[in-house]
Design a protein around this nucleic acid. Structure first.
Length: 106
DNA sequence: CCGTTGACGCCAT
DNA sequence: TATGGCGCCAACG
């Protein structure tokens, strides 16, 4: 397991309930701001890991781009809604409000 | 070993 | 404002 992925998983695991973060932010924290795609790929690999709430990770627009990779397309939205996050048209409402900043939280 | 693809993001047109 | 292309890095065929 590469440190890059380990860091990704660790950050995603740190996301508190009812909050979300973006691939770009995670990538930036890891030092590869432009490698957001790799973060997404890591998420795909994390599918086998239960401790990684991949549903709390969205793109910079708050759009549920990865919903199609779950067991069923609506699972991601359902999980987020279960945590109090409001989603409309596959997009998170009040995205900035539910956005979690890993760097601000220690 | 080389080419293509992808849970993204930014810049150019 | 909307669409398209390029970059980045790793995995897969």
């Amino acid at each position: 397991m590469n440190d890059f992925y380990e860091n990704v998983y660790e950050i995603v695991r740190m996301i508190p309930k009812g909050k979300v973060t973006t691939y770009g932010e995670i990538a930036k924290i890891l030092g590869s701001a432009k490698s957001a795609r790799v973060v997404g790929y890591a998420m795909n690999t994390s599918h086998k890991l239960q401790d990684v709430p991949a549903h709390r990770v969205v793109n910079r627009n708050g759009l549920l781009t990865g919903k199609n990779h779950f067991d069923y397309p609506t699972q991601m939205q359902e999980l987020l809604e279960s945590e109090g996050i409001v989603i409309e048209n596959d997009k998170i409402v009040n995205f900035e409000t539910v956005l979690w900043n890993p760097t601000k939280t220690e």
